[in-house]
């Protein structure tokens, strides 16, 4: 037996470890997600809803704006009107498909914008600390003090309604909470040794944030944001219901629900359709968000 010492022996020993394909974080998350059947089902629903909204012009059997005085409030299952018609005789299926475009956009876009703005502000506040942190976080607290529905209604109302002001209102509503999540995550990560190590190499703050902080802050922000989509859809629907959202005749689920409510005793099932659509989509977003939370907690 020969004597081998030190790193030579150690080096060989590490090379003995059997090869296996390294998996990235997101890869592992995807793998864990695929194990979770319920989440997959609801994710499919969301994807179908988005696809049908995107391809509404191709799928829709009728023009969603074409009114018909003779075919008003037809029940579900009427020939050529699969889901019936509304109070102006417009095809419900087509309007739901087109309405999905607006409702989903109002659900997803404000959250995306808020992730961008709130997330960045939060990272900045968390990384800089001190006065910057106080300034940003106290401003957020002011927004926090208002109930979110009230704030959305107030902003949208003062701006005179419409899709654009609704979008802005919802974005502003979501910024504080996302900012807080990002700030908390950043503060935790900032104190870890690998950030110290990066500082010890002489890296600039910008480089450290982009290379080491963002990637670690993203998962918790992402999980929280996905749960906000359903809230956003509901709030957008609420704004439209109050006449502060999308302007008629552009279809939108919330606004459709509002318009059809006079006909609730005549065609209750048809009137409930936009509500069911809102319910299913927002529930799906919620459950997928829960699934994500589980899948992203890779430590276990």
């Amino acid at each position: 037996m020969t004597t081998e010492i030190g790193p030579v022996a150690a080096r060989r020993a590490d090379a003995v470890t059997p090869a296996y394909k390294p998996k990235g974080y997101w890869h592992t998350v995807a793998e864990r997600l695929s194990d979770d059947k319920a989440t997959i089902v609801f994710l499919t629903i969301i994807i179908l809803a988005i696809l049908s909204a995107v391809f509404a012009p191709i799928i829709a059997p009728h023009d969603p704006y074409a009114t018909s005085m003779i075919a008003r409030l037809k029940p579900i299952g009427t020939e050529s009107y699969l889901l019936g018609t509304d109070e102006l005789g417009r095809d419900m299926l087509s309007r739901l498909l087109y309405g999905g475009r607006m409702s989903l956009a109002m659900g997803i876009l404000p959250v995306l914008f808020a992730v961008g703005i709130g997330g960045l502000l939060g990272v900045l506040a968390g990384f800089a600390g001190g006065v910057t942190n106080t300034l940003i976080m106290r401003t957020m607290d002011v927004f926090y003090a208002f109930p979110s529905v009230l704030l959305a209604v107030a902003i949208s109302g003062t701006m005179g309604g419409g899709a654009a002001s609704g979008l802005l209102a919802l974005t502003l509503v979501f910024i504080p909470s996302l900012c807080r999540i990002a700030e908390t995550a950043t503060t935790q990560i900032r104190s870890l040794d690998f950030v110290e190590a990066a500082r010890a190499t002489g890296a600039s703050s910008l480089s450290i944030i982009s290379r080491h902080i963002i990637g670690n802050v993203l998962p918790p922000v992402f999980i929280y944001a996905s749960s906000l989509v359903s809230v956003s859809i509901l709030l957008a629907a609420g704004l439209s219901f109050l006449g502060l959202g999308v302007e008629p005749p552009t279809p939108d689920w919330g606004q459709m629900l509002s318009n059809l409510r006079q006909a609730i005793y005549i065609q209750p099932l048809v009137c409930a359709l936009p509500g069911i659509a809102i319910f299913i989509v927002s529930l799906s977003f919620n459950l997928v968000s829960d699934g994500l939370r589980h899948a992203m907690d890779v430590k276990s």
Partner: peptide, 21 residues
């Protein structure tokens, strides 16, 4: 465990310093 960025492959963690310079 806390001194390596969990989201970076280890080669990138090692290469980061020279890149900074």
């Amino acid at each position: 465990s806390s001194s390596l960025n969990p989201r970076l492959p280890i080669m990138d963690s090692v290469a980061y310093g020279p890149q900074v310079h």
